[in-house]
Amino acid sequence: MSIQNSRKPVSCVCYGEILWDVLPAGELPGGAPMNVAYHLHKLNRNPSLISSVGSDHYGSTLIQLLSQWGIDRDYVSTNKTYATGIVYAQPNGLHEMKYDIVYPSAWDFITWDDRFTTLMQETDYFIFGSLACRNYTSGNTLFKLLESAKHKVLDINIRPPHFSPRVVEQLLHKADILKLNGAELDLIAGWYSAAHTVTDKIQLLQDRFRIETIVVTMGENGALLNREGIIYQHPGYRVQVADTVGSGDAFLAALLSKLIDRSPPVEMLDYACAMGALIASKPGACPEYDIAEVMQLAGNLPVIHS
């Protein structure tokens, strides 16, 4: 008698940093890849996470949290040399955060595992960012993963001084979907052109790197999506902001969830804005919430497209 494999197929793999955000109010789990995985799991997308933690209390607590949340931790290794990642985060008074990202950390040393080959073959969406390239070891593993990834989602997540224009350009050439904020759009587009408008800057990157989908988050001003040459704009939902840590990661998870469902771009953008706003209204990147709370926001504001 054969035994059927009951493991659910992995729809998304998130790669890179897993760490603790040290905020004025206390320590909270974070790191963009883990944040995205957390929200994808809340949306029933069965994500997997590739990262590394130290053999310390911070690391063991993160592993316990992943188990508690029901997120696949089979590809999160334990590094006996380097400590679990720490980020010191401070608000700047503009509903934005300033980050001091400790280096080196365990997630800078994600080494290749032959099991990754099968994982990538079974996965539709691979989510990654530029921060994972600040060290050669994790960067090298990332580029090897990109060789077999199906749909490549670049959440650029530029954190000075942990990036180089050369590496960012290499990542842009790999991306099928690009998510970035307004400041990152201004920075990167400025390397190639003196384009003035947001739409011109997006078009510049789309044409130069042949990226099918680009989405720009603009904080309290909502977001803009360029999907196959058509522009969609959402004004954003107004909420009482607790902090903005992880709101962009939640936005991306919601966008991908609707993309997997093949929802219309208008619905994708509206749902993502609702999710981002909801998480901004709660402390930390991975708060407790119910999907019904997102649905209460979504669909209440128009999306403009041209």
Rank of each mutant, 00 (worst) to 15 (best):
K179G: 06
M295E: 15
L172D: 02
L23H: 04
A280N: 01
D74E: 12
K152T: 09
N35M: 14
N46F: 04
G54R: 05
L40M: 05
M295S: 09
C286N: 08
I260N: 02
I18D: 02
K80I: 06
C14I: 05
V102Y: 15
A277E: 00
L259R: 08
P165V: 04
W107N: 08
G219S: 07
P9A: 04
P283T: 03
A254V: 02
A132C: 14
L49I: 09
D290F: 07
T81P: 11
G229C: 07
D249W: 09
M268V: 14
L28W: 10
M268K: 08
G229S: 11
C286R: 09
S164R: 12
G246Q: 08
I211C: 04
A280L: 01
Q121A: 15
H151D: 07
A298C: 06
N226D: 12
I50Q: 08
F209W: 05
R238W: 01
P24Q: 10
S2T: 13
A298W: 09
T141C: 13
L142K: 02
D270R: 04
Y58V: 01
S164W: 07
E293W: 12
G248S: 07
H234M: 06
P235C: 03
G54A: 06
M268S: 14
P47M: 06
V168H: 03
R7S: 13
N92H: 03
L172W: 00
S6Q: 14
I18C: 06
H39F: 05
I86T: 15
L146C: 01
W20F: 14
S48Q: 06
Y38P: 08
A298H: 12
A25E: 15
